[in-house]
Design a binder for these strands. Structure first.
Lengths: 336, 336
DNA sequence: AGTTAGCACTCTCGCATTGAGAGTGCTAAC
DNA sequence: GTTAGCACTCTCAATGCGAGAGTGCTAACT
């Protein structure tokens, strides 16, 4: 447990370093914050903080910068949570009301706003349900032997897939099949569809199989549509100036799934993963702040900010939190 | 018009520079290519090439590197077009046959393969038609006052948009409206729909308006879904090592539309835009190689490779060309 | 006229040196 | 517990230097 004074000191160091990206020295702190002690005292205290592992100096005779543990302490104990100014809330709200009334569009917009406000990358997944249920099914012929299977989920998400037919079907035939199946499958989940006993001819059975597969596929994390915005802002950070650093991050974000890179907090919480706490090596040096937003009937999605560990924590947390409540509000109204 | 020897020389310089990213000197050329003249002669010739504007030296006493004009000459006159080895063609073909039979998936895969083979970024737009036509329309209720309008285009593309209803509608009512409209609108373009005289109640009219709008929106370039792959590879190029260079490019590619950054060649041609030939400043230093692939009934899309001007032209052109014919073949079969 | 050997010239790059500046840790005194 | 003072360390920018690369030019050769 740190003394009161060391806590304040750590807080100053983090705040300063986040702002300037420069190691923070004792003199500077005394002057800037009008501390009632001399720089020598501060130096003693900083040495203590270093012993505890909260700060390091990049080299002898440089100021201190926070370690991952330092940020962690800051986040847990020192950070005072901000709330967004009313006018900013209004501005953002306004941007949403100007946007089209589409779930996808909202997610994209949320990512864009988040990224631009925290000046880092943001990732938002569109709302989806853990157990997607069928709302509507349609078969549209592309040509005699090929049909498009269009599935609408209860969560107002539309999936499509192509189905090869074993013999020519007319559109009338397809429509008839779709109508029959629609009645049988309405509101059902993939598991329920597969469990259901039905008398089906082979074409119908193929469609049912495909529909069930589509439902199952819809909840696989890699298929969760997500929007990444603000990579530019990330590239602008001095941490990524050489570009090679970002390369690893990009690969981590593109290839493997975001799911592994981004922690999934419980509802209402904001998860903060700092630097070395990440399971992925490429994410060292990065902090991810993420939360989960939920809507009616199990619908949920994730909002995250990705940046260097040196990031504006209070502001980012406030933004993520606010965007989350906003998305939840929008979802409630949408599915009124 | 360059003499035969100077042409060869330019070709060597381009080939070498593309490979090594280092300025090319006279001695090196004589040795590596066993030229029947001395390095002094080569120096004279290179000075001449420099006068003509095809090469420059980054500083006195460095070798020469090609200018944009040099690359242009190379592309026009010197480059011998490669064709892809049969086995590579087979490999690629195989990758496509393993993929799902979806237009979107094909475009994504094409971008990924293109990028990985030329080690640069690749952009592929999904096939779309210049005048999209209605194939199918469906209305799915989300709740009493909200419905999803799902439109399937003839090109097997599915659009969705949300429609606010002025009074509560049951799903039966919605289905009836959709059925009526389907008959009236089948195969029609946005213009034809708007021109058509119909007796409609206000709900039907709202749906028709929205559908027409969706059709129109589908061909706006900014809505053309496109897949960008291989940004990693781009970042790996020494030209973009500092990262800030790429930043401009990323912005150009994200914000304004790709349409402006990417030339649209006539059918069957491969357009090559080199460095300063680009209208956008951010693209200086980059070459874009792109072609258009076409399918049945006016369907078309674009395949492009984006890289530094120092790029493997023959190989890239061959890849782009091959992927284009492959996409065309796939489209033909798909819409058989 | 074209080619070439020879050579002076120029520029980059890596390396070591230097001095200023920043910031520390330590000690001894308050 | 605090602090003044000071030696110490390390970075950073500037400077100088030598090696190396590659050129352009000239004069001689075919």
């Amino acid at each position: 447990m740190l003394t009161e004074r060391r806590q304040r000191l750590l807080q100053y160091i983090v705040d300063e370093y986040v702002l300037s990206a420069q190691p923070v020295g004792s003199n500077m702190l005394v002057e800037k914050y009008h501390l009632p002690v001399s720089s020598a005292t501060i130096r003693n205290e900083m040495a203590a903080l270093e012993d505890e592992g909260y700060v390091v100096q990049p080299h002898t005779s440089a100021g201190r910068i926070p370690t991952d543990a330092g940020y962690r302490y800051y986040v847990e104990a020192l950070m005072r949570e901000e709330s967004l100014p009313d006018e900013l809330q209004q501005t953002i709200r306004h941007q949403f009301h100007q946007a089209a009334r589409e779930l996808e569009e909202w997610a994209r917009l949320a990512a864009a706003i988040l990224a631009s406000r925290v000046r880092n990358a943001a990732i938002v997944t569109t709302p989806h349900s853990p157990e997607p249920r069928m709302r509507w099914l349609e078969l549209v012929g592309v040509h005699d032997y090929l049909a498009l299977v269009v599935v609408v989920l209860q969560e107002a998400r539309v999936l499509q897939q192509t189905l090869s037919l074993e013999r020519p079907f007319t559109q009338e035939e397809l429509t008839t099949i779709a109508r029959t199946l629609n009645e049988a499958l309405d509101g059902k989940s993939a598991a329920e569809i597969r469990a259901q006993e039905m008398r089906l001819d082979s074409a119908e059975s193929a469609v049912v199989q495909m529909a069930a597969g589509m439902l199952e596929g819809a909840d696989v994390p890699s298929n969760e549509p997500s929007y990444v915005e603000g990579l530019r802002d990330l590239l602008r950070q001095p941490e990524f100036a050489e570009g090679q650093r970002l390369l690893g991050l990009l690969e981590a974000m593109e290839e493997r799934n975001l799911g592994r890179a981004i922690p999934a907090p419980g509802e209402g919480n904001v998860a903060i993963t700092i630097g070395g706490e990440h399971p992925l090596d490429e994410m060292r040096g990065c902090t991810v702040i993420s939360t989960r937003y939920t809507g009616p009937s199990g619908l949920h999605g994730t909002l995250s900010v990705v940046g260097p560990t040196r990031m504006q924590y209070p502001r980012s947390v406030a933004m993520v939190r606010y965007m989350s409540t906003l998305m939840e509000e929008l979802l409630r109204v949408y599915f009124a």
